[in-house]
């Protein structure tokens, strides 16, 4: 027998008679603080960025002359922006795939029911507790041509005196490596949670049926954690598009703009070259990319949560 009161139904369905206020007297006050902050620091700046992207701006950042889509035409015909965009995409792809694969490996290893598993879980999760800035310092140290262990190791392997961070490919690899490291803790923790919620019965049945552990992974684990996996991929992609800290600290966008990813380019154009119009147009391109990724996430993973 199922009646409504057996499930957790939002109490919203039934306001009590004594509590029915006009809307401006009740919910309004609960929402007001957040609405004010969002209006001033999210909606307004978003509108202003769109607005600025349509104007040529002077050095103080004030809109000087309406240029329509001129700024967009400019950035898309600017080889540097194109390079930035291409490199961003390369970075995003490598970073996301790397993070997910590493996290999968870590999670798979850490779900084993053995002694000391808790210690390894903490170890694998630890990178989530290291900020991007601190992590960048750790990696700068590793990449340093004279004292960095990676550089020293490469030299001993016969690569000679390499300065990874001044080599275009090397810098890209360095940024990707450090970013994968930084992202792995978060992805690992999420996957671990998902893996642990797969009922043990499934594996027991599969073992009885003589399935190999690889087959179990592909036929049980992956499908069962696929919602989390999908969520993580989208989150990683969004995060990667916004990558900034590592760039600013490790490579400064260089060498030769190889690692000048889009979020960093927005910052440079706005705050170093004071070209607000161009920076705004670039920011809108970034926004469109992020919005599409987020929309995909909402659409395909959160449906059950939104429309319960």
């Amino acid at each position: 027998m199922v009646s409504h009161n057996e499930t957790a139904v939002p109490a919203t369905a039934t306001p009590t008679p004594a509590k029915r206020h006009p809307w401006w007297r009740s919910a309004f006050w609960f929402l007001l603080p957040s609405l004010v902050i969002m209006t001033v620091f999210t909606y307004y700046p978003m509108v202003m960025t769109v607005f600025n992207s349509l104007f040529a701006t002077n050095l103080t950042g004030a809109a000087a002359k309406f240029v329509g889509f001129g700024n967009y035409v400019t950035i898309f015909s600017d080889p540097l922006f194109f390079k930035s965009l291409t490199n961003t995409f390369i970075f995003v792809a490598c970073d996301s795939v790397g993070v997910i694969l590493l996290a999968l490996l870590l999670a798979r290893l850490a779900t084993a029911r053995i002694r000391g598993a808790g210690f390894f879980r903490t170890a694998f999760a630890s990178t989530m507790g290291v900020s991007a800035a601190a992590a960048s310092i750790l990696w700068i140290f590793l990449f340093n041509p004279s004292v960095g262990l990676i550089s020293i190791g490469l030299k001993q392997l016969g690569f000679g005196n390499v300065n990874i961070l001044t080599d275009p490919t090397g810098a890209m690899i360095a940024v990707i490596l450090s970013s994968i490291w930084m992202g792995s803790g978060f992805a690992f923790l999420n996957l671990l949670g998902a893996l642990q919620s797969v009922p043990q019965d499934y594996y027991d049945v599969a073992s009885l049926a003589g399935w190999s552990s690889w087959r179990q992974t592909w036929k049980i684990t992956i499908p069962m954690v696929s919602p989390t996996l999908f969520f993580l991929i989208v989150v990683e992609v969004i995060g990667a598009f916004k990558t900034f800290t590592q760039i600013d600290l490790i490579t400064g966008g260089g060498p030769d703009n190889t690692t000048n990813f889009i979020a960093y380019k927005v910052y440079q154009d706005a705050f170093n070259y004071r070209n607000i119009g161009i920076a705004s147009a670039e920011a809108i391109v970034l926004t469109v990319i992020i919005a599409v990724a987020t929309w995909i996430q909402f659409r395909y993973t959160e449906r059950k949560v939104y429309y319960q």
Binding site: K242, A270, A291
Partner: peptide, 27 residues
Amino acid sequence: LQFRFKNGIFFAFLITMMLPFEAQIIP
């Protein structure tokens, strides 16, 4: 709570998740 425009306002909140902070820093 029940109030008018609840879904609309909720949507307005959600949509800010789509907007990267990086695009808002200049204003």
